[in-house]
Simulated scan of single mutants.
Amino acid sequence: MEKPLEFLVREPKAPSENPPLLLLLHGVGSNEEDLFSLTNYLPESLLIVSVRGPLTLGRNSFGWYEVLFTTGQPKINLEQERESRRLLLQFLDFLKLNYKFDESNVWIGGFSQGAIMSYSIGLLYPERIKGIIALSGRLLEENKAQVIVSEKILNKKIFISHGTNDRVLSVEFARSVKGYLESIGVHPHYQEYEEGHSINREMLKDLIQWLEVELGNYN
């Protein structure tokens, strides 16, 4: 099976037969090296794979789907978003064939557009994903309408962080996701920070602590 997407890998620093897997998805206009720079700080038990979006936007610049502003309002290319979801699920199958990891302990997380894709994969295919990390993202209304509330959704571990000074994706998006999740019976770890559209040291520290607790026995 050919690899469906480009990626970088950090093997677990603590050797394990069946490590938990963390997929990292970058924001629009970035690439797989962006979030890979965080891997030195993340729990040693994890097999971490940082994935490149399939759309080439420029030199070393990639995305998961295009956003058009022709009407004055952001309109996403839903066909591209669906295709990126398909490729990510195919990519998970590719990883199964090439790496050893615990298929019941797969986590997905990202920043901005990568967080949007993480919500989509984690909530629409809950049997494939144990936990979601959403840094400065939102849940697409089109995908929310497709969520089927099940035990696998209700047991989902979700970390949400967002800057109150975010001028790219307003903190209201994060508050909306929190409200929606709580309305269906999911209680995410939710934190706001005095920050713009970025990941600061405090966010990273909180994420590491949350991951270490949730991974529990794997550390």
Rank of each mutant, 00 (worst) to 15 (best):
E6H: 14
V9I: 11
R10H: 06
R10Q: 14
E11G: 07
A14Y: 14
N18G: 09
N18W: 13
P19T: 14
H26A: 04
S30D: 06
E33R: 11
S37M: 14
L38V: 08
L38F: 08
T39P: 03
L42P: 04
S50E: 03
V51G: 04
R52M: 05
R52L: 09
L57G: 09
G58M: 05
G58Y: 07
R59V: 11
R59L: 14
R59A: 11
N60T: 08
Y65E: 11
E66P: 03
T71K: 08
S84N: 04
L89E: 14
F91D: 04
F94Y: 15
F94H: 13
G110K: 08
Q113T: 04
Q113P: 00
G122E: 08
L123D: 06
I132L: 00
I132K: 01
A134W: 04
A134M: 08
L140C: 10
E141D: 11
K144W: 00
A145D: 15
A145H: 11
I148G: 02
L154Y: 03
K157I: 10
D166N: 02
L169Q: 10
K178M: 09
K178G: 01
G179Q: 10
E182V: 02
H187A: 08
Q191F: 14
E192A: 03
E194T: 13
E195V: 12
E195K: 13
G196I: 15
H197C: 04
S198Y: 12
E202D: 11
D206M: 04
L211V: 00
V213I: 15
V213T: 13
G216I: 10
N217S: 15
N219E: 15
N219V: 06
